[in-house]
Structure formats: structure tokens, C-alpha cells
Amino acid sequence: MPQTVRGVIARSKKAPTELVDVVIPDPGARDVVVDIKACGVCHTDLAYREGGINDEYPFLLGHEAAGIVESVGSDVTHVAVGDFVILNWRAVCGECRACKRGRPWYCFNTFNASAPMTLTDGTELTPALGIGAFADKTLVHELQCTKVDPSVDPAVAGLLGCGVMAGLGAAMNTGGVGRGDSVAVIGCGGVGDAAIAGAKLAGATKIIAIDRDANKLEWAKDLGATHTIDGSAVDDIVAAVQELTDGNGADVVVDAVGRPETYETAFYARDLAGVVVLVGVPTPEMKLELPLVDFFSRGGALKSSWYGDCLPERDFPMLIDLYQQGRLPLEKFVTERVGLTDIEAAFDAMHKGTVLRSVVEL
């Protein structure tokens, strides 16, 4: 039977979020109902509310989540009732051209639930990134669930569902950071600091954190940065990075902001054969203008990182294991624990830069 739960929606562009009743339909053949235990408040949720993703309102917000499988459809084999899972928004299909070419992290045909969740009047909801986890329960495809050790704090585990995975993967997967590399990270919020933690885990020996906020630079040092650059106090960030890297620039530069000016800084702050990774999300109106000869004059690579180029079934259990071994301090990303009625306050804290992550606990 369908069930009614609480959920947080964005009803229209820029309107405050609302806590409303949400109807969860019976799971389809390959669907799963997940009892949500915790869900991080990600900037992407704010972007949905503000109309920065699309206009398919109303949105059921929340996507960076962990919970327990409550019920499953008739053909589900991937998980079972009672499993503790992290939800993901890239449930790879295995059949599209990217998957068949051995690049499933670029899957063009990811799976979502077969039926929509609705308001009590029948209005269909668009779940954020196909998940919609600012709710007591949500409905997803079975392959959106990755089973992990149930002893892990859900508030910590859920962070791998989006932002922290994006940053870790930007350094480890997309950037290919290796032992002895130098790494610079522009923007030290949750994603940037996760890139710093990933660079440390991968064996980088020089990790340079760049931000204009002194508190964020302190967070970055706590997560592995060996050097910091205060962008508000330095005239030439590129020169500052070069000074710290024997005049060469960094082997890998991660732009966790996603603005033309930060990307230009990343482009010139890398070594001549270095890698630039864009993981910060730009908005459609942004333009980049650089001399074409400067592209020609450098080798290396310019890459964009989608979800940290992760494979949830490969990466989530591995990263949870590293956390349990004390090698990956995921708990440091949880700044505060809030409730479903606190989403607007969490958005405000995110905007002010006073948190790495607010996490909704249910």
C-alpha cells in the first residue's frame, strides 16, 4: 500500500522550502523504499530551490543520504530488506556507449524509480538528482543503493552520496593524484576540502589550499593541507603557487569553485604538463576567454569531474573501510546535525560559509 511521510519541497523558484506530506507509492519491480536516517544539505539542493537546475517544480529536495531498505520490488536482487545503504545518483546501466567502452562513470542512462512520489493531491514531485531524501522515506531504483557496513554513523556515511565523493574523486579519480605529487585546491568548502583529503590519501606531499576565508583555510589544514594561500591577502595567486612548487606550478590543480576567474587561476597555476580538474559547478551564463596559444603551449590535461568520476559499488565500501581504519576523517565534514524543519537555516549557514556540512538526521 502507498504510504504518506514527511518531506521537504521547493514549490516554486526561490520560494522558501516547505515541510509537507509526501505519498510514497508501492515499489515497482526494481524499486526500493528506503527509510532515511541522515541526509547532508548540499549546495545542489539550494540550486534546485533557486531554479539553477531546471524548472520542474515542485522538487522533493535532498540527495546526499544513507538509510535502511524497508521494502523492495518483486525483481530486486541487488539489496535486501534491512540493508544499510548509501544512496547514489549515478546508477550505471551497463549498456550505454560509455559503459560498453569501459567508462561507466560517464554512464548516459542511469536508473531512477519507476513511479513518481507525489503530494497528497496527486501533484508529481521531481526528486533532487533522482533521490529526494529530505524525507522520512524515499523511493529509488535498486541500483541507486550501495550496501555498506551498518555500524557506520549514517550522518557520516551519507556524505559519500554527493559532495564529499565529488571532492575525493576529483583528486583521486579524475586528477589521478599520485605519490609525491603537488596539488593545489581552489575553494575550501566541503568539496574542496574533500579534494584535499583525497590528495592526502593518494600520497601527495605538497597540498596547497587556496581560499579567501581564514576559517576555511583552517579546516583545510585540519584535513591535510600542508600550505595555505589567503586569496584576499595575495596579489598574484599563480605566483604564490609557483613559489611553493619550485617555480613550476602544481601537478594537479582542482577548481572547486567553478567560476571563470578561478578556472583561469587553475589553468596558469599548474605545471606545464599538469592537470586542471573542474569540479565546482558553473552557471550557464558564465564565459571563459583565454589566449588559444596558451592552450597550445601547455601539455597535461584539462578535465571536468562529474560526481568525482566515481563508481559507487567500487568506491563507497572502499572509502567506508578507509574511514573505519582511521585513514579518512569523514566525521570532520559533519559540522552540525539538524532536523527536517531546519533546511532554510542550513542553506543560510552554507551561504555564509560557516559549515562544511549540515546533516539532517531523522
Rank of each mutant, 00 (worst) to 15 (best):
A184E: 05
A197S: 15
G169Q: 08
G176I: 10
E218M: 11
V183W: 07
A220M: 06
S182H: 09
A220N: 00
T226W: 07
D193W: 00
A170N: 08
A202N: 04
V177G: 10
G189F: 12
C188D: 08
V177Q: 10
G203R: 11
A195K: 05
I207L: 13
G180D: 04
K200P: 00
L168P: 04
S182M: 09
G224V: 04
T205V: 07
I210H: 08
E218W: 00
T174K: 12
G167N: 01
V177I: 14
A194T: 04
A202R: 09
R179C: 01
A184Q: 08
V185I: 13
T228Q: 04
K221M: 13
V191I: 15
A220Y: 00
T205Q: 12
S182R: 06
T226S: 15
G192K: 01
A204N: 09
W219N: 05
A202G: 08
D213Q: 13
G169A: 12
G189P: 12
V183R: 03
H227W: 01
G175W: 11
D211W: 12
A194M: 10
G167Y: 05
G176T: 03
G180S: 14
G198F: 07
K216V: 05
I207E: 06
T174Y: 03
N173L: 12
G231I: 03
G224K: 01
T226E: 05
I210C: 10
G190R: 00
A202T: 02
A194F: 12
G198A: 07
T205E: 15
A170K: 02
I207Y: 11
N215K: 15
H227K: 05
D230I: 07
